[in-house]
Design a protein around this nucleic acid. Structure first.
Lengths: 205, 205, 205, 205
DNA sequence: CATGAATGAGAATTCATTCAT
DNA sequence: AATGAATGAATTCTCATTCAT
């Protein structure tokens, strides 16, 4: 039961702490992220940190939410829906994805890497929901006759496939595969898959 | 001349420690895996642990190598190459993947989840190499005329896509998406992608 | 000429803080009583708390004094002196004691429990002094010929014996001993003791 | 689930830690007793402390048990039962009580003062049980005709009365009341009470 | 070689008190 | 005077690693 920041200064501090958390995670890695270091980077005492966040996890959760909002906003600004064909649409999304993963000096990268120990759902779900909506709109507009049944599954597969493939690639600075090529191929795989007809309905015995 | 018993004993102890490491990770999760517990499960003293492994990381690395070998062997035993068409081949591989992830009481699951903090490369690389070889053979046999240039990229994409999509699905016991359906859709995506023609060669200016 | 409003406000605030202190101790126990919580319950800022009380201890001391006054007043209102015989007098006092300990939702209980860390003397002394006076009056009225020399010691013994025996009993909700029975036996012990003749004067060599 | 000390050295260390705990509590008071200080006084690292005791409370519990055992042994050695009359018997017990409270440089004093926050039951119960037994034997021997019904209540009252009266007296180094006098008066009160006939059985309506 | 007791550098969290606004 | 945000020392507990026996 921490106090909600009501004052101007509070809001500034909360933001400073969240920013510091991001900075520390990005610079030292999640494993070396201590509350002491976060407070220090935020230019604040540990006590203040705990004034605003019940514990370390709450702070990290706030960071996740903040990033999720940012990503959501970024996605909304993308003119993806203007794309006429699936390939260019998927291509835009994937290029956007790479851009995000490279942004903030690798913070996103570190977060996705540690997805399992973090309330990542907040972030990944944002992506998934966004792409879900995107896909729905697209099919509504271009293939009204296609009642794509398994859209959920497809979006789940596609989101995770692209995300983790990108992260793995960046993480191991694989010199053999250029990012451009990877993006193109991912685009081809995903576009091809999304455009494919749904499977026939299984007969239930 | 008999083998020196020390060597014999050593090998047994090393193996016991590696096994114990796997068991502990699987039972308590990577974060709660302590050297003390590993030694205890191995029925050995911590001191002995450090006799054979320079530090905790070395022990984990050894576990990874051990698993990589196992998976390699398991993969070789798979009659995947007998499949005539791409779809059934990919399908087999994916079902095998799910089986592995569910095996050993979730050890593999926990390892993939924490891939970034582990020398997982050893394991994932094994997979990738294996599928690389598999793909090469397949195309050699069935599409000799196709000089698939970007096979490496494709295998990279496909391996990571499938692996992490599966892990994410299992990790969040998503009741909405059944594992069977996921497997089928993954198969469709991958098979469709692998069978698609390579992109035209870009003109280099 | 009106009272200066500051003084007025001060007195209100001081009282609010003391009341809040009692409430918090009673609700959360002395160990979980923080200045922050006290201020919150008093509907006042921590800063104000320190305006009126030098530190936490001063606040608690004020509470003790306040309670001591209350108890003193309560005791004076008791028609104990009307009792004719020792037993009924002691009985009344003990029943009154139990009532106090059960009052204020256990605040007194918690205070006596922690007597050593608190300036409890103020409170217990009030009791002791009161009973001293009571005893004096009683013996004056009924046994004028008895120059009870060691009345101080007797009252000291009796006060502490009864007080802590009651507190211990309540604290361990001892199902085996009913409170009524305890009160009766305490009464018998105390009345018997108080009515007993003083010891002979020792010969000083 | 800490290891039980099996080795010689372990037992020594466990004892050293318990002793150190007593020493620190006695020297600095319970409130200033930290694990760090205990370890330091025991000439041991904090880590070792936690090797043998799950947490601070476990350590304190062990101290209590140790003291309880000591007191129990001390009580058994007392030739109390040889006393012919109640007064001399009670007197012996009370003098023994004072001796214990003064022993170990006030450790017992500090423990009883903080009885509410400690697993004191172990210790106080030992006393109570012992006196219970003592009383039983005494009445069996001397007043076989007295079927003292409410012995439990009496022993409860007497034990707590004496114990806390003594502790309060020592704690406030009351110059007005000499310890000898207090002991004598306590003896008179207790002996008189214990020797008094039981109350008539109440008629149940 | 094997043992496991001992180490001690951190890490998270709390709370009385201060002081700028 | 009042506020409540900010402070930071202090406390408990963990665990990889070492080393005397």
């Amino acid at each position: 039961m921490r106090k909600r920041p009501q004052q101007q200064r509070s809001r500034v501090m909360v933001q400073a702490l969240i920013d510091a958390t991001g900075k520390v995670i990005q610079q030292q890695g999640l494993d070396n992220t201590t509350t002491a270091r976060i407070a220090e980077v935020a230019g604040v005492s540990v006590g203040s940190l705990y004034q605003y966040f019940g514990d370390k996890d709450a702070l990290i959760a706030a960071l996740m939410k903040s990033l999720a909002d940012d990503i959501g906003a970024g996605l909304k600004r993308l003119p993806i829906m203007d794309s006429v064909d699936m390939t260019s649409m998927v291509g835009s999304a994937i290029r956007f994805g790479f851009a995000v993963l490279h942004s903030r000096d690798g913070l996103y990268l570190e977060l996705v890497r540690n997805w399992h120990r973090l309330p990542t759902n907040q972030v990944v779900d944002v992506l998934q929901q966004h792409f879900m909506e995107l896909a729905r709109l697209y099919f509504l507009r271009h293939h009204q006759n296609y009642p794509i049944r398994n859209l959920e599954v497809r979006v789940f597969i596609v989101t995770n496939s692209v995300l983790f493939t990108m992260v793995r690639h960046i993480s191991q600075d694989n010199g053999l595969i250029r990012e451009n090529e990877l993006a193109e191929e991912l685009t081809r795989m995903v576009a091809g898959y999304m455009a494919s007809p749904p499977p026939p309905i299984e007969a239930t015995p």
